[in-house]
Design a binder for these strands. Structure first.
Length: 587
RNA sequence: GGGGUAGUAGCUCAGAUUGGUUAGAGUAUCGGCCUGUCACGCCGAGGGUCGCGAGUUCGAGCCUCGUCUACCCCGCCA
C-alpha cells in the first residue's frame, strides 16, 4: 500500500474543509458523467463521495474510469464543501466531498453475485453462499457491530459487579437429559466420545464450589436439534452464576444487565424494575410461559359455565378434566367468515381439534352453536367475558395442555393481525415459580422442566415423591415481548437433595453416580448456595435490532438443514481420518 | 418425521382465462454518449439446461409423478 489511510468514510465533516486526506474502502457506486466521475466510497463507518475531475488530475480520472463496484481503492485528495443545495441529507458525510488527485487500486472485484444496496430483497440461499459479500451489506454489518457493542456493555457491567470471566470446556461429557448432543469421537479410546456443551451449567456450578463467587462467560452452546428462524445448532449465551444469593440477587443482575444494554446501546426505553408473574398466572392468562404483555386479549377460563351447557364437545371436555378458555376479541365481530376459518385452521395447526366462536350483537350472542346454550348460560358468559356488541368470542376446549397451546398461539396471531402490538415497545417481565417437573405426554414419565439441578421450593420438597408435578422450582425466566431471553434458577447445593431429584426423574442411583458422580461428590465438599441464569445472546440481539431471523445477527449461520452453504459444512472426511477414529462406514 | 410457500437471465420478478411458433421486463454486465450526480441520465449489445429426472401429449416454463434446495410452521429444542 502506497497510500496510508488518515480517516474513515463516516467521519469527515464541513469542519474538515481543506484537509488533505487519504480514504480507503470499497467502491459502493460509481456515477460517470463523461467528465466528472462520482464514487461513493464505502467502509464499515459509512459512505463518502469522492470526485474525479479530468482537469484536476487526468491520471486519477483515467483510473476512475476503470474502477467498478466492490473494487478496493485508496484515494488521496482534499476535503471540499458541496455547492449550495448539493448536500446529501441522507449521508452523515453529505455536506462534504473529496476532490481526488491520487488513486491506488488495491484490488479488483468480480461483478458481485447480488446487489449490495438496500433496495432489493435477495434470496437467502445466494446470500448465504456468498456470506462474505452479504456481510458487506450495511444492515447485516450494523447488526454484527451492534452485537459486539452489546457484548462490550455486558462485559464491562458484569466486571463492575465483580464477575470474573472464566472459560469452560467445549469437549465435555455427554449428559443423558435435555437436547441431543453433538458428539466428537475420541481418537485415544475407540468407542468413547466427547460431547459439545449444551450449556456450561455443570462447570459453572463447580466454579461456585471452587469459590469463584461470581462467574460469567459469553460462550457458545451446541444442541443438535432442528432449526428455526430463532434457533441455530450453535448459539451464544451470556452465562453467569453467583454464590451466597437467592432469586432476588440473580434477578437484580438480570435487570442490571438489561438496563445497561438499553441505556448504552438503545434509543428505546424499557420499564424497570420488571413486573413479576408466576408461571401459573402466565398459563392462566396467556396459555404460555413467555407471554407477550404488549397487548391484552387475555384468556378467560369458562369451564365452570360450560359444564352446564348442552354442547357435547364442551361438556365432555369438562367431564374429562379438560380446560375451556375463551378470548374476547374486542370488535372482532366484523371479522369475515374466511378470516375466522383461517383462525380456526391456525388453532388446529397448534393442536386444537377446533375452535368455536360467537359474535356478540345488540340482540345477544349469535353463532351456529348458540342454540346449545341456555339463556342463563349465555348471560353468565356475556358477564364473565365482558362481551359488548361488536365483540367476537373464540373458544378452545381440550386437554389443558392443548387448550393453552392452541389458544395461546391464537392470541399471538390476533395480536399481530389486528395490529394490537406496538413494534417499538419493549415490555419485559419475570416469570417465576415454574413447576419442577412436567409430564411427557408420550411416555407418561416426568421430566425436569428447567434442568435437574434446579432447587425446589423448600416447602414443596416433601411432595417430591408423592406428588412431583405439584412441586414448584426456584426457576425464573426473563421474557421480553413474548421471547424467553433469560432462564435461570437457584441450584441444588447439597448432594442428598440432588440425588433425590435425580431419583424422582426415574434415574437410578447407579446411573446418577455414573453420569453426575463428579457433581454429586463436589456438592459434598462444601458447596455454597448458588444461583444463576443465562441470556440467549443471539435472540436478544435479534430482538433489539428487530431482525427477522437469528441468522441476521450471526456472522456465519447454518441453513434449516444445518448446512453452511458457503463452505459446504458438514462434509465428508478421508478414510484415513475415520480409520484413526476407529469409525467404519459400511458402503 | 409431517405440513406449507418458493425455485424462469448475475440479481428481483412477469409469463393470464384453457399446453401452441422466436420465453419477456427492470436492474446488473459490456460498448457508445454525457462536467454536479448521489439507486445519475440517454442510446445500443450480449446474456436462458425455465432447479433436476421421468411421464402424458403432435407439442410442456405451464399438466402428472418423483426428486433436490431455500424459507416458514408443527413435532423436537432439560
Amino acid at each position: 500500500m502506497r497510500l496510508k489511510r488518515t480517516h474513515n468514510n463516516g467521519e469527515l465533516r464541513l469542519s474538515d474543509k481543506e484537509s488533505e486526506v487519504v480514504l480507503t474502502g470499497w467502491v459502493h457506486r460509481r456515477r460517470d458523467h463523461g467528465g466528472l466521475i462520482f464514487v461513493d466510497l464505502r467502509d464499515r463507518y459509512g459512505l463518502t463521495q469522492i470526485v474525479f475531475d479530468p482537469e484536476r488530475d487526468p491520471e486519477a480520472h483515467h483510473s476512475a474510469e476503470m474502477i467498478r463496484p466492490e473494487w478496493v481503492i485508496a484515494v488521496h485528495g482534499k476535503v471540499n464543501s458541496r455547492a449550495e443545495g448539493m448536500a446529501n441529507p441522507n449521508l452523515a458525510t453529505g455536506e462534504i466531498e473529496i476532490d481526488i488527485d491520487d488513486v491506488e487500486i488495491l484490488n479488483k472485484s468480480k461483478t458481485p453475485p447480488f446487489p449490495l444496496d438496500e433496495y432489493r430483497e435477495v434470496n437467502e440461499e445466494i446470500r448465504l453462499k456468498y456470506r462474505y459479500m452479504d456481510l458487506r451489506r450495511e444492515e447485516i454489518q450494523q447488526n454484527l457491530l451492534f452485537r459486539s457493542k452489546v457484548a462490550g456493555v455486558v462485559r464491562s457491567y458484569l466486571a463492575s459487579q465483580d464477575f470474573a470471566e472464566i472459560e469452560t470446556p467445549f469437549l465435555m461429557k455427554s449428559t443423558p437429559e435435555g437436547a441431543r448432543d453433538f458428539l466428537v469421537p475420541s481418537r485415544r479410546v475407540f468407542g468413547e466420545f466427547y460431547a459439545l456443551p449444551q450449556s456450561p451449567q455443570i462447570y459453572k456450578q463447580l466454579l461456585m464450589v471452587s469459590g469463584f463467587d461470581r462467574y460469567f462467560q459469553i460462550t457458545k452452546c451446541f444442541r443438535d436439534e432442528d432449526l428455526r428462524k430463532d434457533r441455530q445448532p450453535e448459539f451464544s449465551q451470556i452465562d453467569f452464576e453467583m454464590s451466597f444469593v437467592n432469586e432476588e440477587d440473580v434477578l437484580d443482575v438480570v435487570e442490571g444487565v438489561v438496563g445497561a444494554i438499553f441505556k448504552e446501546t438503545m434509543d428505546a426505553e424499557i420499564n424497570l424494575p420488571f413486573p413479576r408473574m408466576t408461571y401459573a398466572e402466565a398459563m392462566d392468562k396467556y396459555g404460555v410461559d413467555k407471554p407477550d404483555t404488549r397487548f391484552g386479549l387475555e384468556h378467560v377460563n369458562v369451564g365452570d359455565i360450560m359444564e352446564k351447557c348442552d354442547f357435547k364437545v364442551f361438556k365432555s371436555v369438562v367431564e374429562n378434566g379438560g380446560l375451556i378458555k375463551s378470548i374476547n376479541v374486542k370488535g372482532g365481530a366484523s371479522m369475515s367468515r374466511g378470516k375466522i376459518d383461517a383462525l380456526i385452521a391456525y388453532s388446529q395447526e397448534h393442536g386444537a381439534g377446533g375452535m368455536a366462536w360467537m359474535k356478540m350483537t345488540e340482540n345477544g350472542l349469535e353463532s351456529n352453536i348458540v342454540k346449545f346454550f341456555s339463556e342463563e348460560i349465555q348471560k353468565e358468559l356475556i358477564g364473565r367475558m365482558q362481551a359488548e356488541p361488536g365483540d367476537l368470542l373464540v373458544f378452545v376446549a381440550d386437554k389443558p395442555s392443548v387448550t393453552n397451546k392452541a389458544l395461546g398461539a391464537v392470541r399471538l396471531k390476533l395480536g399481530y393481525d389486528l395490529g394490537l402490538i406496538d413494534e417499538n415497545e419493549f415490555k419485559g417481565l419475570f416469570v417465576t415459580e415454574f413447576p419442577m417437573y412436567e409430564l411427557d405426554e408420550e411416555t407418561n414419565k416426568i421430566a425436569a422442566m428447567h434442568h435437574p439441578f434446579t432447587s425446589p421450593f423448600d416447602e414443596d420438597v416433601e411432595l417430591l415423591e408423592s406428588d412431583p408435578l405439584k412441586v414448584r422450582s426456584r426457576a425464573y425466566d426473563f421474557v421480553l415481548n413474548g421471547n424467553e431471553l433469560v432462564s435461570g434458577s437457584v441450584r441444588i447445593h447439597t448432594s442428598e437433595l440432588q440425588m433425590r431429584i435425580l431419583t424422582a426423574l426415574g434415574i437410578s442411583e447407579e446411573e446418577a453416580r455414573d453420569k453426575f458422580g463428579f457433581l454429586l461428590e463436589a456438592l459434598e465438599y462444601g458447596a455454597p448456595p448458588h444461583a444463576g441464569a443465562a441470556f440467549g445472546f443471539d435472540r436478544f440481539v435479534m430482538l433489539l435490532r428487530k431482525a427477522t431471523s437469528i441468522r441476521d445477527v450471526i456472522a456465519f449461520p447454518k441453513t434449516n438443514q444445518g448446512v453452511s452453504l458457503m463452505d459446504e459444512t458438514p462434509s465428508t472426511v478421508s478414510a484415513a481420518q475415520l480409520r484413526e477414529l476407529g469409525i467404519v462406514i459400511k458402503d
